[in-house]
Amino acid sequence: MRIVKIRTRVNGKDIQSEVEPRELLVHFLRENLGLTGVHIGCDTSNCGACTVLVDGKAVKSCTMLAVQVDGREVTTIEGISKNDELHPLQKAFLEKHGLQCGYCTSGMILTSYWLLKNNKNPTEEEIRKNLSGNLCRCTGYQSIIESVKYGAQLMMKEKEKEEQQIEVR
C-alpha cells in the first residue's frame, strides 16, 4: 500500500496530509479533518449530500479521490461563514424553513452558493435546474427554492452595504 502526500487548502487553511490513493474526498474531509458538515447520503453519486466546492465548483465528494485535490482549494459548509456569523444563504435557509432534518442542507447551500457566485440574481428555473443533483427527502423542495431566492436578495443587499461603506471611507 502506497501512501501519497498531498497539500491542499481547506476552508482557507493550508493542509498537508498523507492519504491512500483510494481514499475518497468525503472520508478525508470527515475523518481526517473532522469536517462533518459534509454528509454521506447515498454513497452512489446520486444525492448530493456530500457536495463541496473544489476550486470554487460544486462537486460530489463521494465521487472524487482525496489525492485529486492536491494543489487545489476545497470549501465545505464550515468554510462559508465569516467571523462566526452565518452566511446570508444560511440565514435564508433558517428564516424560510429551507430544511427539516437538515441532512441535505449543506449540499443545497453549497450548490446554490456556486450558482450565486456566477449569477447574482437567478430565475426560479435556474435555481431549480442548478439543484437537480441534490435530493431532499423532507421538504418537498419549495421552501428550499424560496430560501435560495431570499438568500440571493440578502447577498445583493450585503454587497451594496459593503460598497457604500467603501465609498464612505
Partner: peptide
C-alpha cells in the same frame, strides 16, 4: 447530461 455536480467533473 446527469446534473450540474456531475457535469462539473
Amino acid at each position: 447530461i446527469a446534473d450540474p455536480l456531475v457535469r462539473n467533473r
